[in-house]
Design a protein around this nucleic acid. Structure first.
Lengths: 208, 208
DNA sequence: TAGATTGTTAATCGATTAACAATC
DNA sequence: TAGATTGTTAATCGATTAACAATC
């Protein structure tokens, strides 16, 4: 089986969001054409994306909404929530701690860290903020899969190194830095500045 | 001149971040090979990306750091900050209000809105939260270019419609919904769930 | 000058789109 | 059955990579 192309992978959460909504509305089946109307994607592409993810439809009927949801949740690795540490309790870190939506997206933040003495010991959205120095010993008793970096860019690589020594296997990086990681650790950038760049540069372009 | 490919456009903010850092360190020139070492991109691709953005280098010397920064800032439309309204003062909205980094990225949030009576009238990171109903009349006296949507997914389209009637030209959408907009309004998704999906599904894959 | 690096043209690779047979 | 929709194979399109001449 060929690996799924990354653009394809990035579209799956969009389909899943729609399908979950339809499921709540009690819709049983949906065709790719209809998904396309609601997500702005080409129906053929949707069919290919879903097929990459292992979803199967029925000719003349379409895709079963509930089944396809389950299949996408599995494929995205969102079935069992992965425990995560968050480092950097600034504005962005605070937001993520309060973003209960991640529970639907495979992520379970279990602890947050900072080095600012004004933050350490305080509580944000129900999470106590620990000092970064205590991270390693805390990690020992847990099974932490993902590290989330919401520190200033300058310290991102150091934080990544600490997280890796804690045994995490994936990093979700909110800084614009490209992190150096060993081969077994996967780093993905949230790339907020990239999407903001796309928006601003399009606005700055002479209107077509 | 051919339009810049979107993947290329998304990489520019990454280069800019690095170049700004180098400029602070007093570095005068840098070659694409060196940029590649620091960002993980192929040097040839960097050369092409920079050329798309209108940056020019000198053979045997490389690209002037300061000049290239300025060129990228211009190309990305980050020279003059665009005034923005933010709708939805939940966890994510609160984060963005506190994320002073956007001032370096062309964005100037001028007001924030919500409908929750517990939030309206309060102050978050120095921004007073207004009721959504007052948005239209406030917009009249201002020149708002961008609307940021950090509401629950279910209300995203309604909010988008309101923002459009305020005369904004671009939407930065933090919900997983695909927004319907008229042709002259550009909508870009921050797509947090997409990057989280990429990370989780890679973690779930059998290790290569 | 010699040599490193750019800028650009051509070749490759991969993703998207189109076409169509299979099937419920 | 007839017809809508899937699944898949082939064709197209566009982005990435390689090759190399231009140039400081």
């Amino acid at each position: 089986m060929k690996a799924i192309p990354e653009p394809s992978l990035r579209r799956l959460p969009v389909y899943l969001e729609l399908l979950r909504e339809l499921r709540e509305q009690g819709v049983e089946d949906i065709s790719c054409t209809q998904i396309g109307e609601r997500t702005g994607q080409d129906p053929t592409q949707i069919r290919k994306d879903l097929s990459h993810a292992g979803a199967v439809g029925k000719p003349r009927v379409g895709f079963n909404v509930a089944e396809t949801c389950e299949q996408l949740v599995d494929f995205l690795g969102w079935r069992k929530n992965v425990d995560a540490f968050l480092v950097g309790a600034g504005a962005m870190g605070t937001a993520l701690l309060g973003h209960e939506l991640f529970l639907k997206q495979g992520l379970n933040i279990v602890a947050a860290f900072d080095i600012d003495p004004r933050k350490v010991g305080s509580e944000i959205h129900g999470f106590e903020i620990f000092h970064l120095d205590t991270m390693n010993s805390l990690a020992r008793r847990m099974n932490i899969g993902i590290g989330i970096i919401t520190t200033p860019a300058a310290t991102a690589q150091d934080v990544a190194d600490s997280l890796i020594s804690c045994g995490i296997r994936g990093i979700w990086n909110f800084t614009p830095v490209r992190l150096q990681t060993p081969g077994h650790v996967i780093a993905v950038n949230a790339a907020l500045s990239s999407s903001l760049g796309v928006l601003c540069s399009r606005l700055a372009m002479p209107q077509p």
